[in-house]
Design a protein around this nucleic acid. Structure first.
Lengths: 133, 133
DNA sequence: CCTTGACCTCAAGCTGGCTTGAATTGGCAG
DNA sequence: CTGCCAATTCAAGCCAGCTTGAGGTCAAGG
């Protein structure tokens, strides 16, 4: 198995060396050994970092990402929990879509006050979050 | 205009009083005055808080939310910037959808190693984030 | 053999978004 | 008028997720 120096991993993954060390401390990734002092990583770490970066971008904490995918990159949870995660993601996607529509609306609707525009209020109220106004 | 005590705003919006004071410090919301020491808010603050909460849920910082909607709840940006925001949201939605599909896949695919499953790799590579593996 | 420079460790610091705690104020019920 | 209790201010603390800095090591090139 070809080994990569931490610097090479950093460059190819776009993740800073300090972050890689941090991830290793947390147990999210594992180095394959050392050359002298220097950490060497197997190439599979690049795929794992993709997962981590993707999960982070999706709003999950490192702990949560670690929970979804073990440090080997394999899923770590029973099927139903993975589906539950996916359901949560769908909910988040709905929220985002809502916000996106709200933004498009305020960009295009010429109404003087959006807070009073029924369409806008409807968009807001569609959110699970909305206060009891 | 009916005024609400900060406690009532907290209860109806689900936002803690300390957070409301923090938002006021940041200029995201404005209190309509005081009764003695106590902040009083106009009812429109509830709608503004919906926007703030929605924006936060969508992964935006308070500064960014403040930039999208002014402290009056009105959009603060020119149309094209609002559309740019909406485009960014769409990109984020695609990332989330990707992750969701990846999770569903690993939940259902019986392959021994997902890192080697072509479908899974394809899902990952579809992400803008993926390293040059 | 010696220098170079990328890596190492460990502790401390930083940002965002609040929460907590101590000490104080003041509207309102009795 | 008294006392309660929720609200006030201000500083400090907390968590996540890193980054930065000081001081040290070592593999490879000249």
């Amino acid at each position: 198995m070809k080994l990569l120096d931490i610097g090479e991993v950093a460059e190819r993954s776009g993740v800073a060396p300090s972050a890689l060390r941090y991830y290793e401390d947390l147990g999210l990734i594992t180095s394959a050994g050392r050359k002298g002092l220097r950490r060497q990583f197997g190439v599979e770490v690049l795929l794992q970092l993709s997962l981590i970066t993707l999960g982070k971008a999706a709003g999950f904490s490192l702990q949560e990402v670690a929970g979804m995918f073990g440090k080997d990159g394999q899923p770590d949870l029973p099927r139903d929990q993975l589906h539950a995660r996916a359901d949560a993601l769908e909910a988040q996607i709905r929220e985002l879509t809502l916000l996106k529509d709200a933004l498009r609306h305020v960009a295009d609707c010429p109404a003087p006050s959006h807070l009073e525009c029924p369409k806008f209020q409807k968009l807001l109220r569609a959110g699970s979050i909305t206060a009891e106004v």
